[in-house]
Computed example of a mutant assay.
Amino acid sequence: MDVSGPGGNLRRMTATLPVGSDPQSVRKRIELLERMLEGLIEVPGLRRKVGLDAIVGLIPGVGDVVTAAMGLYLVWEARNLGLSRWQVWRMLGNVGVDTVVGAVPLAGDLFDFLYRSNTRNLKIIRSHLDRHHPQTRLIDQ
């Protein structure tokens, strides 16, 4: 199983995690979190990646709550970046759908594998950053 991801090994990625509140630091943090939640490990034979959202979601009850909290962190960062209320509500809806449907035994686990709420939310944040902070596009990946 490959846990390295496109940016190098996980240990190196977390060692260089920026702690600033500037848009570039936030972008790097949320992209790393999204990669951990949605694309940490490639499933052999399927050529599809899964992350902590699908893996931890296998733990009944607790798993979906934990991954929802991680997803809400993305929403919190988005709010701090100044995304519109509509964008924040869309992101909250994505996390809510993922949490509620993901809590259904077995079907919810398949749903977590297919419905990538954190990737959807990252797309919303990237759109905002590209429009309002275009200099953040130059991040090493």
Rank of each mutant, 00 (worst) to 15 (best):
E42H: 01
R27W: 02
V62C: 00
D112W: 00
L72N: 15
N9A: 03
M70F: 14
T67D: 02
G39K: 00
N121Y: 12
L138Q: 15
V66C: 00
N80Y: 04
R116H: 11
V104Q: 14
L33A: 04
G93Q: 07
I41H: 03
L122E: 08
L10T: 04
L110M: 09
G71N: 08
R120A: 14
R85M: 10
G93F: 01
V43C: 00
T99P: 12
G51F: 03
S127T: 15
A69T: 10
P6I: 01
I41L: 01
L106I: 15
H132R: 14
M70L: 15
L37V: 00
L83A: 09
G51C: 02
R11L: 01
V101A: 09
K123D: 14
R11M: 01
V95N: 05
V19N: 03
M1I: 11
Q135E: 15
L122S: 09
A69Q: 11
G45S: 02
L74W: 10
V75I: 15
G39Y: 00
G45E: 02
K28A: 08
T136S: 13
S117H: 13
L106V: 15
R85V: 11
D64T: 02
G8R: 08
N94I: 00
I55N: 02
V26W: 00
A15E: 08
T99R: 12
T136F: 05
I41Q: 02
G8S: 01
G82V: 12
M91R: 11
R48K: 07
N94L: 02
L138K: 12
I41E: 01
A107Q: 08
G5M: 05
L32H: 06
T136R: 12
T67I: 09
I139A: 12
Q24H: 06
V88H: 08
V101N: 09
Q87D: 14
L83G: 07
I124S: 15
N9Y: 04
I139D: 14
V104W: 14
S117P: 04
